[in-house]
Computed example of a mutant assay.
Amino acid sequence: MMMSLGPYASFIVTSYAAAALVVVILIGWIALDYRSQTERLRELDRSGVTRRSGRSATDTP
């Protein structure tokens, strides 16, 4: 089934390709940032840093 996009076919195809490229770039950026953040959290955990929200209200700082 071949669709006829008319005289604006190149604009339509380019627009869809650009949108797909932006989505792929954003997915890659999020994946790399996720890896970076989890590695940073592992480093902090290994160095003994804990979350303040993990303490109870009766604990002394």
Rank of each mutant, 00 (worst) to 15 (best):
A31F: 10
I25Q: 14
Y8I: 00
Y16K: 06
M3K: 09
E43M: 06
M1H: 08
R40F: 07
S56G: 15
S56V: 01
V13R: 06
L26S: 14
S36Y: 13
V22I: 11
V49Q: 09
M2T: 14
S36T: 09
I25P: 02
R35L: 07
T58L: 07
S47F: 10
S15T: 14
R55T: 03
L21N: 06
Y8D: 15
T50H: 07
V49T: 14
E43A: 08
F11S: 12
V22C: 04
W29L: 15
A31R: 10
E39Q: 10
A20V: 05
L21M: 06
S47N: 13
L21F: 09
L41H: 06
G28E: 04
W29C: 13
S4A: 03
L41A: 13
L32E: 06
R55H: 13
V24K: 03
R46S: 12
S53F: 01
R42Q: 06
E43R: 15
G54H: 02
R55N: 09
A20D: 15
G28Y: 04
L26R: 06
A18T: 14
S53N: 05
L44E: 15
R40P: 00
L21S: 08
D59V: 06
A19H: 01
S4T: 09
G54K: 01
T14Q: 12
E39M: 02
L44R: 14
T50S: 13
I12N: 04
L26T: 08
S53T: 08
A19G: 07
Y34L: 02
R52S: 02
A57Q: 07
G6L: 02
A57R: 10
S47P: 01
V49W: 11
L32G: 11
V49Y: 15
R51C: 05
T50P: 01
A19Y: 10
